[in-house]
Amino acid sequence: MAYQIIVCGGLAPDPLQTLEPVTTPTGPGLKNELMLPNVFDPWAGHALYEAANLAKNQPGSTIKVVSLGPKAKLQQVMMTVAQKLPFELIALDGPGGGFTDAVSVSKALADAIAAIPGFDKSQALIFGGWESATRGAGVVMQMVGERLGITEQFLAVDELTVDPDGALVIKERVEGGKHQISKCAAAPAVLAWATGSLPEPPNHPQTGMANMRVMMPALQKAKPTALDPAAIAYAQVALPAVTRQTRIVKDVPAADIAAEIAAWIKQ
C-alpha cells in the first residue's frame, strides 16, 4: 500500500537552552527568542523517522513535512533535518512559539495539507508529535484531523505496523506504562507519535544536498501565515519561583545515608 505521509512538525528551542518568558507587544514570548537556537520538535522528529521507516517498507509512499515557523529559522533547522532522510517541505512562514493559538495553527496546517497538489485523503496518513515541546498541549493533530475530516485518530503512538491485508496495527501509550493496541482497517488516519522506537538517523550529506535543491525554493516562497493573536488572553507567564533550601549531607558514611533514606521512604 502506498501512502501519502504528511508529517506536521514545528520548531522548538534546543533543549539545553535556558528559557525565560517575556511580554511582547503581541503577547508572551521567550526572552531572546530570535537568538535561541532551534531544533525540529523532538516529538515530530520521532514521527518523521517513523514515516521514513514506513515509506521504506511501503513502496511508492511519499513523505511531505508541513512546518510552520519563522522562515529563517525553518531554513536553519532544515539544514539539520534534511540530512536525515528524503522528504519534501511545505513551509509556512509564521510565528512558531509555544504561546500561539493551537486552533489557528491547526487551521493553517490543515489548509496547507488540503492544498497539496495531488493530495488524496484516501491514502493519507497524517503524522505529528503527540505534543510539541513548546506548547505541550497535544491538541493540534486532532484538530488537523477534524478539519480534514479524518476521524480515525491515535495519540501517543509508539508503534505502527501494516498487516498483509492493509490494516494499520497501532500501539498507543495509555496510563500505567501500558500500550493499547488497535487495528484500523485502512488509511486515512491521524497518528500523533510519542517516541516510537527508531533512533535518529545519521546525517547523510547526499540526501541533504538532494533535499535542499527542492527545499530552498519551497522556503523562499513560504506562504506568510498569520495566526489569531487575540484567541488567548494571557494574564501571566512566569518561571516557577520555588527555590528550595537544600540540606547538604556530605562526609557521612554511605551506611548512615542509607539508613536515613530508608527511614524517609517508610515515613
Partner: peptide, 14 residues
C-alpha cells in the same frame, strides 16, 4: 541566514 536565503550556497552544520 542571509547567505542561505539567496539559495546559492548550502551551509551544513554538524
Amino acid at each position: 541566514q542571509q547567505v542561505m536565503m539567496t539559495g546559492l550556497a548550502q551551509i551544513w552544520p554538524s
